[in-house]
Amino acid sequence: MTQQTLTPQQVYRKQAAGEALGPDGNDVQHRHVLTVLVENSLGALNRVANLFSQRGFNLESVSVGEAKDPQLRRMTLVTTGNDRIIAQVIRQLNALIDTLEVEDVTAYDHIERELCLVQVRCSATERHALTSVVDIFRATVVNITPDSLTFEVTGPPTKINAFIGMMRDYEVLEVARSGRVAMRRELAFEH
């Protein structure tokens, strides 16, 4: 169906759905960071993850931890997909009995952080050069052996990516990333 034959209502619906109007257009896809407050109950994590896999969405990152209320857990999920379908998944998440609050923080000013442990092969002679790179990222050494160093680095995902990228010059033995945690930023001095 070409654009010429669409009725005004059909154009409205396609735009509302974030769908391509013509065959050469693309659906609107974005990365979404969702925070979900769930009961600390059996299977809650499964139910949340299930909604994404059911719709064919890959979860790029998942992190779960205790929230302010010790009976609750705050999850941070990162996924990419059509905005309208994500919005529908959010409504389905809200419908789960275990969830108390679901928020797509992508649309708001928000903080995203990740922690990463990187173990790198490093002889005594290389140590100085390596730690000088690491200092730029304000990473800390958490373990040392005669031929390896393990760093801990925290920051936004872009910084973690850059850090791991810089480590490629050395032999990276292992990487463990925590997955993102996110929170909306309160803006006290906006005006």
């Binding site: 169906m1 009725t7 396609k14 759905a17 309208r84 529908q88 409504r91």
Partner: peptide, 24 residues
């Protein structure tokens, strides 16, 4: 895509995930 091509749609439902799911 070709369904009810001229219609504006009022959609009342108790399930928020159902509203605008298939047709906005």
């Amino acid at each position: 895509e070709a369904w009810a091509p001229h219609a504006k749609i009022i959609h009342m439902d108790i399930d928020p995930a159902c509203i605008s799911k298939n047709v906005p």
